[in-house]
Amino acid sequence: MNIFRLAGDLSHLAAIIILLLKIWKTRSCAGISGKSQILFALVFTTRYLDLLTSFISLYNTCMKIIYIGCAYATVHLIYMKFKATYDGNHDTFRIEFLIVPVGGLSFLVNHDFSPLEILWTFSIYLESVAILPQLFLISKTGEAETITTHYLFCLGVYRALYLFNWIWRFYFEGFFDMIAIVAGVVQTILYCDFFYLYVTKGEKVAIPS
């Protein structure tokens, strides 16, 4: 564990909690892509199946449970509790266009051809593109609320910090995971456009379509 990893995890946690609180406090999930949240719930579920097979650390176990719990709570709020406020008309990204190719790729490029390993790889690839429905929704409506942009900013910071974490691990531990690194770079690039708008236009982001 290094400072970049820890800060990245905390930034990720902050993003998840910001989103949950936003929906809970405003009693509305307007502007939030339920499809992205379903994808994130799927990402955590397929990645953290190792909760059942191996123990890494108390920190690791706790964070995994919190991430999974929050992901499902968010999906529940969007599709059940505050369904009336859900922006389904604009949340039209076809997630099968992400899930099918990502599923195929995880069968072809993985560390080990075993069920758990393929699911883990699937989760890594899927996470890298899971934010696309959310960015698509913002481009369709033409704007995002301030709090939604904070959420996206925290997610982007988390990804960027993980890149530094991998650089650190490569230099000081000789460790690298090519699958995680390539997917992480792709994911970070997806946030660059958003970062640029966030910094130049302030918090009120409107992605030009």
């Binding site: 990720h12 191996s54 460790f175 690298f176 995971d177 090519m178 995680a180």
Partner: peptide
């Protein structure tokens, strides 16, 4: 541990 998967990460 070169090229091994990062299972200890989140």
């Amino acid at each position: 541990e070169d090229g091994k998967s990062a299972k200890d990460e989140l």
